[in-house]
């Protein structure tokens, strides 16, 4: 249970995940913000008004999949680092994940990095496709990782080499 362990169960992740039929149309945000907290930068930062929080600021954000274009702006604006963008990779056996990343050194395009699931367990080595870190992002980099379809509901983040030491 999330409140005891800090990770969400795979069944719930599957249920909350953007449906595959939407991913075919383009990349979509996946918001993993399961608790009522007083927070709203996801909604105010989205230029496409795709995220709404109804009523009180504590209510959970809701994504309108039709409006979301997968730009990733909400990803680095969320103080909880609770959003990623999932998209279809060129190779149909893979998906792309745009994740927020706040560790130095940043990976480089083409690097092989260790993929981790929501419990921090190792999934294997994945390729970095893109790294964005402009001034507007305020030190939260956006890293695009190529992830095999089998880990669609597992992949959560990356670890870059041993260089976090």
């Amino acid at each position: 249970m999330l409140k005891k362990t800090g990770y969400q169960e795979k069944e719930i992740v599957k249920k909350e995940f953007p449906p595959l039929k939407h991913l075919k149309k383009g990349p979509k945000a996946f918001i993993e913000c399961y608790q009522k907290i007083p927070c709203n930068p996801c909604t105010t930062s989205c230029p496409h008004d795709a995220i709404t929080i109804k009523g009180d600021i504590i209510n959970r954000p809701k994504l309108d999949l039709a409006k979301c274009v997968g730009c990733g702006i909400c990803v680095y604006n969320c103080p909880g680092l609770a959003i990623m963008v999932v998209g279809q990779a060129d190779n149909p056996d893979y998906k792309t994940f745009d994740i927020p990343y706040e560790f130095y050194p940043l990976p480089n395009k083409g690097d092989r990095v260790l993929g981790l699931n929501r419990k921090g367990e190792e999934l294997g080595m994945f390729t970095v496709l893109r790294v964005l870190n402009n001034k507007r992002q305020d030190k939260t980099a956006l890293v695009r990782v190529k992830v095999p379809n089998e880990f669609l509901y597992d992949f959560a983040t990356i670890k870059v080499g041993e260089d976090n030491e």
Partner: peptide, 11 residues
């Protein structure tokens, strides 16, 4: 919980 999730996925 978003803070907890951040830690947990890093192991």
């Amino acid at each position: 919980l978003v803070h907890a999730q951040k830690l947990r996925r890093l192991g």
